[in-house]
Design a protein around this nucleic acid. Sequence first.
DNA 1: CTGAAAGCGCTAACAT
DNA 2: ATGTTAGCGCTTTCAG
Lengths: 335, 335
Amino acid sequence: MVTLLDVARRARVSSATVSRVLNGAGRISESTRRRVIEVATHLGYQPNQVAKSLRLGRGRSVALLIGDIEQGTYMALTKRVQMALQALDLDLLLFNLDHREDRLFGFLDRAPTMGLLGVVMAVPRRMDGRRLARHAEQLRAQGMLLVAVGQRLNRLGVPSIVHDEVAGAELAIDRLVAGGHWPLAYLGRTLTSATGGARYRGFRAALAARGADAAACELWECTDKYRAEAGYHVVGEALRRGTHVRGVVAMSDEMALGGIAAALDQGLAVPRDIAFVGYGALDWGGYARPALTSVLVNADAVAEAVEELFRAHREAQEPRTLTIVQPALVARASA
Amino acid sequence: MVTLLDVARRARVSSATVSRVLNGAGRISESTRRRVIEVATHLGYQPNQVAKSLRLGRGRSVALLIGDIEQGTYMALTKRVQMALQALDLDLLLFNLDHREDRLFGFLDRAPTMGLLGVVMAVPRRMDGRRLARHAEQLRAQGMLLVAVGQRLNRLGVPSIVHDEVAGAELAIDRLVAGGHWPLAYLGRTLTSATGGARYRGFRAALAARGADAAACELWECTDKYRAEAGYHVVGEALRRGTHVRGVVAMSDEMALGGIAAALDQGLAVPRDIAFVGYGALDWGGYARPALTSVLVNADAVAEAVEELFRAHREAQEPRTLTIVQPALVARASA
DNA sequence: CTGAAAGCGCTAACAT
DNA sequence: ATGTTAGCGCTTTCAG
């Protein structure tokens, strides 16, 4: 590999000069600048990022912590965030936590040694706030930027990007009610998932705001299973119990799909007998039959906010502590 | 941050000794070893990975290059590979190529400077072989391991992990034929996708092996659109043309879902009027209605092979140049 | 068995 | 405007 020193020798200048030219710092005479550039390109010089990281005390990688990347909405998020970081010439280090808190803290322990520029946590799981706050403090002390996505952690000093869950629930509820689907159930995981919990509170708040008879509505909690399977299971059970629910707000498109399958398998018509709204508005949802009506979780907006935070961090500006992303309804056939 | 030198001072030994203790190299008296360990844990010492990488000339990260991570099968792969690498205490750097060759080569240009341990390319796209071979050579010269997934690049000196596309096609075809669905079409992208092309050749080979009337079968090429949308579009067109095809082998579950939607939207019954087999056996496929019959692309087996390659590389062994992963049929309702 | 010292490739004072 | 030098934190000869 050709090093900066190789360039320096060949251009008959010191390594410092080459460094200055390449980083656009300090005054350099036009002639040397040109010569250095010339030699560097001729030699195909590329700065060693590892050495740079060591010297500067921070690198160009941002770690993205994901609860369950197999869930479509996180996948979409991962892609968008990677592209946003790429726009800042940053790399993405991916960690799938598999919904395990020990993995999260295991990572946070090692994080300071990795030469990271920052960490983005897109982790729905509820977690130990004290412990997290300690880690957050340590990372900040190292000059790293920690960002939370989907969970409101700004109280712990972690800039957060969250969705407006009340607005999202309102969109879903209004759609269901307008279609004559009532009463409603919220299908999801509220106990272990902070996102799910927030979404459920949004659901409740939206019902209240509408002056609706919230008591008629139910919470269909998913416990042991995940994604579509959980939806299928829980909705199937409820239907067998003879629930009166006619409209379901699911926490994800996968759960909605599972729920719809359960309803269809029991001979019900969707949305006539029971309607479903998903969350995420994933691509394939438009091609399920009936096509999924879904609350759009705007991954682009989230990625943009992430990019903005890292841009500000680079300019040594104070980061915006809370960004609220607005949802939208993708109205299709299932509700 | 506490450094190795801090530990050394506190334990009254030299930095070399600490390094040796922590890396289990060289002879160390039991007493010093214990003392060093003791001090290290007491101080909560964690080796700086960046410094380590610089010194050793290689790091602990493996880059995963993905054509389109939003496609379910790549997402499943990403998750598995990340977990496999984690088992080797390696980190995953993710790059979504968005089906763009320039991005691939752009990455490969920078790769040598990043202190990577290796690169895994899960890129279906056909690419410039010469150019790739040059990069492969350079990476190898740096001691990095380059691995291809889903595309047979072993001729270029790149250890490859591929699926047995003939076996996969046979599974799909046998299932369709047994259900009385005939003639067949292959739905996918064969022109720009090496994986798709291989899969189509597998389809043809399997037809031939079955002694079937291959001339009756069609290729439904997807050009401008992606995933479910492409399937919907192409199948819709074919149906409107009045095709005689009664069974479709799709290149992915998303395309199959789109195809099914097109058939249903035209009032056909699936699988009665036309049957579909997907590829990937994604989780949600089991909850689409009709549930997707699909050829399982064994992401676990691929991840395992990746792990094995990196393990061998670590032991400085020659890597296995070609690994062929066997498919399986997940039989559900759509065929 | 342990220590001293060099150096991975780069940047940033500090000189000149 | 440019060079000299120190050093980021670690591993690895080379000596003893």
